[in-house]
Design a protein around this nucleic acid. Structure first.
Length: 881
RNA sequence: GCCCGGAUGGCGGAAUCGGCAGACGCAGCGGACUUAAAAUCCGCAGACUCUAACAGGUCGUGGGGGUUCAAGUCCCCCUCCGGGCACCA
């Protein structure tokens, strides 16, 4: 059965027999010709040395994972940065526009299982296939500085960086509870857990495991990563906000509550003591056990309203208490069980609050009251100290919990305005009351202070009395990079029986990832099953040592790859500092918003570490960031499961690379989602055909000199005006707005004007010199968007120069200016007439022109003119009664 | 729940600073060319209404209110769609 493409190809071939060759636009032929030519000129897209007089420009699209097939998202992404790169070349910049492969990662192992192909082979095949597709698209990359992260020449520097970080205490190992995806059979970073599920397996609930893990101390840079967001004014505000939230700085205080020694509790207290729902009042003779429970709070001002402490179920003190209390132990176990069940049910956002009283009390250091200590399932062990003071009157979550378990609720802040106090503060129905614009009550010596002032004074008080201090807590956690997988960078560490943990010596790098590996479904790292990999010699004592078998998170690879492009073949260092200093920061980075947090925050961290190592001089890697929208079809993101995927190969085969690329820029502004409509691609292809036919039809006349623009016919003047308006529009858009959809629309308008003027052109009213100017400029304007056609037509116009470095056309304001313009004339804001005036007509002229208009005169006859608003070049509005 | 986007003809979108809403393209309709079709070219095209026709009129940018001579654009309230975060103390 013939496919649709075959049928269409046959139809095209049949048409080719009859139609005159010169009249037909044949993208397949043109593109094959230029692709072959460019292939023989690898230096075409080369950068110039640092000594170049040209200003540098580093434009970069995010490197793809080599899945084997480009998808439309890639086509869109790379059409944007390619257009910009080409434009900057034509503007005379020394352009770096590289490409590479994020080549480590799980799919290669999955593919190995499925097809019995080794990960390396599978990956390199995919890279070859995708590189072919990129070349077919005509993307302007200098492949000589290609970076492939799974090759030892690259990943040895991951290892080298890891050792440098280890030396500085930035890489460390600790046992930690980790997110575990059973399908990946590996650890996931917090960032890779989406709604409690694996980011790769959206249906897979992530579990927890305790493992020894390697971490990078990104939290050392939390404050700088936050502060420097302010410098990134070339980034979308949305991305900066997401990173700000991710870092999650919050200011507050840490206060230590001492566990009470209940041994001499009074008789009267015994009943209350057992329930654990009420405070025990301060009294003489209360003793502490010496065990401190630090809590973190942003609202230390409400501490007199604290009526219980809540500990995370995993809190070490809870474990300790449970050890001697089987009842508590069971209760906590069931809390954790419930939590797990809720999570398994996919109910992650709002797990119902549960808790259990531990039987212990802790002393509020501010007032000596004893608070019942509870275990609450809503307390997170890995944020703050894993323990909180619960203030039900002034916190949503504590309020829920207290109501459920009948804990005391005590109001300690009231609105400043007493009227509101009656309405809000004193009515329990309206609790919790949270506003910080409030005054303290029931708070001892701090009464009647404002909340914010009280926060400072109380933190200082805690400091003076040595039971607390003002602190800052971040949501950002250290970056766990250990993965129990094969296809990644081996972590260059050894475990020696005698010396303990020992780093691999620099001279022994790279630790090569073995290739003859057997991948099985059993999980755990396959490397651990390879004695020839695991058994090593300790560089310290020469004794037997075991190699670390975990590999690095692939986000390590992409955290610094763009530095390597500047010096891709350096085998002495990751790159030369001077070369990086010339090219960095990246002037423009283009990619999907899905990398707003992970990749972009790790990259920023890596840059700061490299700066502190003296390797780079920039604080930030990326000056300007552009996040393009998704490609969707039938309203949904393209995905295999939805069956709405459009293959770039198919589009290119049917309409050509130029049309495919240009459509992806034309159908929507680049920052918005793009609805893929194949008819639209056909439309762009038709347009390119019109350009082709028009230009080739007049190419002989256009081959001569570009002439003077004085003394021309009105037709010529009109065409030149349109041309210079178009150049102006596109030039301005490239400077920042990037609405390439309207740029392409403007080129279409120009071509429409040209074909509409064919009569005049044929009658000789448009001299050859004018045609020469217009057609050359048209081809130059098209070059960033449809490079194949542009190169072909450039040659047709007799140009020998390389179009990529031909100077971008300059617009002439004088030629772009309209002489006569049409101004709307309104009466009471409603359009009634259009008057034609000279473009520089002043207010009086405009008013007179409008009042002289026959239609206007008729409509205002007999009415009183209240006011006339005249905006030169815009409109006239006559207000009448 | 909180924080960002967004909503404009049959469709994708345009209107950059408050000044002719619907550029450009798709789909559609009519015509030219053709034996015919494809390709190509020319023209029409927001809705409603009036008219034999020409010409006109009214409404119209998710909904409601407001500011203004003038609002897709600014302000307030609401609805829906998309994205991010989500017990972060």
């Amino acid at each position: 059965m013939a496919t649709k493409e075959q049928t269409e190809a046959a139809a095209m071939a049949a048409a080719g027999d009859s139609a005159p060759l010169e009249a037909r636009y044949t993208p397949a032929e043109i593109e094959a010709k230029w692709e072959a030519r460019w292939e023989t000129q690898p230096e075409l897209y080369a950068t110039e040395p640092r000594s170049s007089a040209k200003p540098k420009y580093y434009v970069l699209g995010m490197l793809p994972y080599p899945s084997g097939q480009l998808h439309m998202g890639h086509v869109r992404n790379y059409s944007i940065d390619d257009a910009l790169a080409r434009y900057m070349w034509m503007q005379g910049y020394n352009v770096l526009h590289p490409m590479g492969w994020d080549a480590f990662g799980l799919p290669a192992e999955n593919a190995a299982l499925k097809n019995n192909t080794p990960p390396r082979q599978w990956t390199l095949q995919n890279i070859a296939a995708m590189k072919r597709q990129m070349k077919r698209l005509g993307l302007a990359y200098d492949w000589r500085n290609e970076v492939t992260t799974c090759l030892p020449e690259y990943y040895r520097w991951n290892q080298w960086f890891f050792l440098r970080m280890y030396e500085r205490g930035l890489a460390y190992r600790r046992k930690s509870k980790v997110n575990w995806c059973p399908q990946c059979a590996t650890v996931l970073a917090n960032e890779q857990v989406v709604n409690g599920c694996c980011w790769r397996h959206e249906e897979q609930i992530v579990g927890q495991r305790d493992l020894e893990q390697w971490f990078l101390r990104i939290t050392n840079y939390a404050q700088e990563l936050l502060d420097d967001l302010a410098k990134l004014d070339g980034w979308p505000e949305k991305v900066r906000t997401m990173q700000r939230n991710w870092i999650g700085r919050s200011e507050g205080a840490e206060v230590a509550f001492e566990l009470e020694d209940p041994s001499d509790g009074s008789e009267d207290e015994e009943k209350a003591r057992r329930a654990g729902t009420a405070l025990l009042p301060a009294r003489e003779g209360v003793k502490g056990t010496g065990k401190k429970i630090p809590v973190f709070t942003t609202r230390v001002d409400t501490i007199y309203g604290a009526t219980s402490l809540q500990l995370a179920p995993e809190h070490p003190l809870v474990r300790e208490m449970a050890a001697t209390d089987p009842g508590l132990s069971d209760a906590v176990a069931s809390l954790l069980e419930q939590q797990k069940k809720a999570r398994d049910a996919g109910d992650v956002g709002a797990i119902e609050k549960h808790g259990v009283f531990t039987g212990h009390y802790a002393i509020n250091p501010f007032n000596g009251e004893r608070l019942p200590v509870w275990v609450g399932n809503y307390i997170l062990m890995d944020y703050g100290t894993g323990a909180i003071m619960s203030v039900p009157a002034h916190d949503d979550r504590d309020c829920d919990f207290a109501k459920k378990y009948g804990l005391e609720i005590r109001i300690v802040i009231l609105p400043r305005r007493t009227g509101e106090a009656a309405e809000n503060g004193e009515s329990e129905a309206l609790l919790p009351y949270i506003a910080e614009d409030s005054l303290l009550i029931n708070s001892g010596e701090f009464n009647s202070l404002g909340c914010v002032e009280a926060q400072h004074k109380m933190a200082a008080y805690a400091g003076e009395h040595k039971f607390g201090k003002a602190t800052v807590t971040y949501r950002l956690k250290d970056w766990g990079i250990s993965r129990q997988r094969y296809w990644g960078t081996p972590i260059p560490m050894l475990y020696c029986g005698a010396c303990g943990i020992v780093p691999v010596a620099d001279s022994d790098l790279p630790v090569i990832l073995p290739e003859n590996v057997e991948i099985t479904q059993t999980g755990g790292s396959p490397l651990a099953r390879m004695p020839e990999f695991v058994n090593a010699k300790c560089p310290k004592c020469g004794g037997k040592a075991l190699r670390e078998t975990d590999t690095m998170d692939t986000f390590v690879d992409s955290s610094w790859y763009f530095y390597r492009y500047t010096d891709a073949h350096n085998d002495k260092a990751p790159f030369a500092t001077d070369t990086v200093a010339y090219w960095f920061p990246i002037d423009q980075y283009v990619g999907g918003v899905e990398h707003a947090i992970l990749h972009l925050i790790y990259s920023r961290f890596w840059t700061k570490v490299m700066r502190d190592l003296g390797l780079v001089r920039n604080d930030e890697p990326v000056e300007r960031l552009f996040t393009q929208g998704m490609v969707i079809r039938n309203g949904a993101k393209m995905s295999k499961s939805k069956g709405n995927v459009v293959s770039p190969d198919e589009m290119i085969a049917r309409y050509g690379a130029d049309a495919t690329r240009m459509y992806s820029l034309f159908a929507a502004p680049p920052d918005r989602d793009l609805e893929w409509q194949e008819d639209g691609v056909a439309g762009v292809s038709r347009f390119l055909g019109r350009v082709w036919r028009f230009t080739t039809k007049y190419e002989e006349r256009a081959k001569g000199e570009v002439g003077p623009s004085a003394g021309l016919s009105p037709e010529s003047q009109a065409l030149l005006r349109k041309l210079h308006q178009t150049i102006r529009k596109i030039t301005e858009d490239f400077a920042g707005r990037w609405h390439f959809n309207t740029c392409i629309a403007a080129i279409m308008e120009l071509v429409n004007a040209l074909t509409a003027a064919e009569g005049a052109i044929g009658e000789g009213k448009v001299p050859d010199a004018v045609l020469a100017e217009i057609l050359r400029a048209l081809v130059l304007l098209l070059a960033p968007f449809a490079p194949y056609l542009a190169f072909e037509l450039w040659e047709h116009l007799g140009e020998k120069s390389d179009l990529l470095r031909a100077p971008w056309p300059k617009f002439d304001e004088a030629l772009a200016r309209e002489e006569q313009i049409e101004i709307p004339a309104q009466i009471n804001g409603k359009l009634r007439a259009v008057v034609k005036v000279s473009a520089d007509a002043d207010e009086d002229t405009l008013r007179d022109a409008a009042l002289a208009d026959e239609k206007i005169r008729a409509l205002i006859a007999g009415k009183e003119i209240v006011r006339i608003i005249v905006v030169p070049r815009k409109l006239i509005n006559i207000v009448v009664k």
